Computed example of a mutant assay.
Amino acid sequence: MEITEDLPLDLGADELSNVLCKLRAREGFTDAEMRELKEAFQMQTSGKCEEIACPAIQKALRWLGHSYAFEVVQHFVGELDVDCDGRLDFTLFVKLIRKCRDLERRAATAAFHRLDALGLGFLDDGKQCQAFQSLGCLDAAGNPPPRSLAECSSADLSTFLNIVQRYKFSASRLRELRINAGYSELELAALRTHFQRFDKDGNGVLRKSELVQLIEELFPRHSNQREFRPYFIQLLGYADADKNDCLDFPEFVRMIRKISDHMEEQNYESFNKSLDDLRFTTKEAAEFRGLFLQADQSGTCMLSFADVKSMIARCCVLDAEQSTKLLGFCRSLAAVDSYGFWGFGALDGSGVGVVSKAAWNPWNKPYSAGASGSLPETV
């Protein structure tokens, strides 16, 4: 039975149950929104497969205006992935979008209350602009979202939330995001700064020699890998739409997005391989990732050794000898740049399981999950 405005009111128990199930599956989204979600989901499916994995999920989220670090997307998926295969069907994907919308609404609510220090229940134009800036709701010129005169002069919480939602999910903003490969205005400004610095003659395009130098600076880890070279050459052909052996800024942005996606896919494969090699379950990995994200106070999805030590100290006691062994272990991983280390002394989310295992194993004490699969509190 389809849910329409002329739905009969004299429903039997089975029909009513069917309607309620369909309403719950929609997670409060309208018909138009459900069609848009379906389109974004199907863009990432291949063949007859009706599920998508984390790299594809991140692309679908980006298409819909939700920008999250890959480790955060993995964490979200882990909370919804009932069969622990790292993939979501469309029903769970809709739940994920609802989760994202709710999180963003809570962030906007927190921004409102932070600026409403006196508890007046409304924000004037100046306070609204400060809140919009903290939420990334300013355009490239630093202008706030379009508002009526009444909204500018005073906005209560409900009005403020409506303004933010109008801006974030307006057709014009989504169209601009998609043209810009999902990058925000601030991210584009940073990319443009890099682009202009390597555009030595200031002609608005990068020659291949200039581009190679820029890629080596932006992606030092990948650009020095032998297997990256063929991929980079292939990318040049993809990004150079007019085939003039140079890239203008829009072409450059598309190529950077492709490289970033390629890196995320490699990290995802490395993460899954780490789980197999270390014989961790998906549930244990989700617990490690939760610890990692709690320790990542800067929101960069990178941890220094001090961050790693603090993270592990939440699960077990580390004495001086164990801390020294952990430091040596982290340095050895950073030196070979494997399992997710990015530069000396920093760890990204794909390597959290390795370091978590190191917290117990350097002093030959076996890892053993509790009865519920949770991490042990002491060693």
Rank of each mutant, 00 (worst) to 15 (best):
E216V: 03
F195P: 14
L333Y: 01
L333W: 03
Q44A: 12
L80P: 12
L23S: 03
W342L: 10
G349I: 02
A107M: 00
F160E: 07
V308Q: 06
G345W: 11
I57P: 15
L236G: 09
L149P: 13
F90H: 09
H66P: 03
R98C: 08
S274T: 13
G290V: 06
E15F: 03
L214P: 13
L149Q: 10
A358S: 15
V352F: 13
N143L: 07
L161E: 14
L149E: 12
E5D: 02
F90A: 01
T378Q: 10
A369C: 13
S153D: 06
V82I: 12
D296V: 01
E377V: 06
G340K: 03
S153T: 08
A56I: 00
C137H: 02
E210R: 04
R87W: 00
G340Y: 06
Y339R: 08
V72L: 09
N364L: 10
R229P: 05
L11H: 05
G65M: 05
L278S: 12
C137D: 06
S260V: 07
F232Y: 15
D31I: 10
S338C: 12
I163H: 08
Y68R: 08
R331M: 12
D124V: 01
F288M: 14
E176P: 04
N272K: 13
Q234L: 02
F195C: 08
F219C: 05
S209L: 09
K168P: 04
C330D: 04
A13K: 06
D81W: 08
T4L: 00
E269F: 06
D319L: 02
D10H: 01
Q128V: 00
R24T: 12
G328H: 12
V317Q: 14
L118D: 15
G349P: 09
R257P: 11
L138Q: 06
E36M: 12
L247E: 11
P8K: 05
C100V: 03
R314F: 01
C246F: 02
R221I: 10
R106D: 13
V72C: 08
A13C: 01
E71N: 11
F76T: 02
D277E: 15
A150Y: 04
P144W: 06
S270V: 08
A171K: 15
D307M: 09
L161G: 04
G349C: 10
V72D: 08
N244P: 05
Q297P: 00
L20A: 05
S332T: 12
D83R: 07
L303P: 09
S154A: 14
S158I: 09
K38Q: 15
A13Y: 02
